[in-house]
Design a protein around this nucleic acid. Structure first.
Lengths: 132, 132, 132, 132
DNA sequence: GTGGTCTAGACCACA
DNA sequence: GTGGTCTAGACCACA
């Protein structure tokens, strides 16, 4: 369910980290459940295992997952509360950036609202089919 | 007026490019006007001249500015129309990304609208003073 | 009585080896006495049998224990003298490392003595209850 | 000044991290001073640049150093206070481990003191010559 | 030249 | 099979 963009500037390991946080946030993977193995996820994403390993390692350092050697990585017990905080910060950040970008090009609040609406609609019309 | 973030993953030359497009878009610099020299802008942004040079070079390739050797770089005659197209695409892109990011974390349209409103207000209260 | 740390870098089989040497050294298990079976110890330590097997195998190679196929592992006849030598070397090693670590951070002999005293006291106050 | 043990179980990147913390602690490198470049240190330690890079990256995440891309890594402004805390924790840890190791082999406080004294003397006699 | 990311691939501890 | 470390080496952004 994680998608990787190789164009663009965000490192693959960051995209993996965000993808996993997203899955935890959505409840796709729940506390104490195992993540896919490094090798499996690497194969699925067509990415080097080292890159996945880095993502997992950083998620572990940040407390989202914990790893049992020889077994697998598991979503931490307290991941939900961590994710919750992280998510709020992340969402604020994402829209602050988008809005200040828009402001830099002279858009006012009304125009921003309008473009948000149009993109919301646009994604509804296109995107919904994919999930089914 | 251009601000550079050294943390984060977006290359500095990209930030400079976007900054200049923004200034053209806002009319801060108009068609046929000269851009600051590479050295001056580099000094102002506390950035290496090579980085500014790259931004200018790419803006030239994209037709936004034209550089006369030994002289300076000027905003192209047809920059406004180019910028206009670029701006629409850019804004759509920016909000598409923000919204799909939010969707990845399970936010629905109502929640997205709410967060956009809160960030719009938040930036009004803080940010406006800086521009004056 | 053996405790395993899964965080940290010392392999589990090494921790098991040291734990058994410790028990021989303390007389908890005496010469010619049987060690717990690999399966039992593995269960007790919540560790994979392979890992215990490796510890036993290496202890055998070093002469501390001997394994009779189909039966069990026994503490060797001459284990005490071996342990005695090993223990002296081990203790010197342990404190050499600790002290040189402290030296690397600029502590002088007086400061090292002081910290040793404080840790000795600290462990007395907390740790003694656990053993009983 | 950093020494790497390839025998033993502590990962090279950890040894590098500790070595650098030690140098900061000793004032060998001071706040705002540049660390050796990744490539240089890798060459000096006869280690892969990736390994040094990992050490630097983790030191950065922990706040001890900060990296300016294209330039170098620098000791953070607030490194001293961080190091101070880290050092205390580290020294307590080191001696707690050493002492509990000794306890596992039946040594009492008096014997531990004696062995500490003997190792302190031993290192004085051997080690001092090297520093000059 | 300097740091950052990524790949390919080896070897080890653990299950 | 699973994660962890390490090496060798490529390519990019930045100075």
């Amino acid at each position: 369910m994680i998608t990787i963009e190789t164009s663009g500037f965000i490192p693959i390991y960051e995209q993996i980290k965000k993808g996993i946080k997203s899955e935890i946030s959505l409840g796709v993977i729940k506390a104490n459940e195992a993540l896919p193995s490094i090798r499996d996820l690497a194969a699925e994403l067509v990415v080097n295992p080292n890159t996945v390993a880095r993502a997992y390692r950083e998620l572990e350092h940040e407390g989202f997952i914990c790893t049992r050697k020889g077994k697998a990585s598991f979503v931490s017990e307290n991941s939900s509360s961590l994710i919750q905080k992280d998510k709020v910060r992340l969402m604020e950040d994402v829209f602050d950036r988008a809005i200040s970008e828009a402001r830099k090009f002279g858009l006012d609040a009304a125009e921003i609202r309008r473009i948000v609406e149009s993109r919301l609609k646009n994604q509804e019309n296109r995107g919904e089919g994919e999930g089914r």
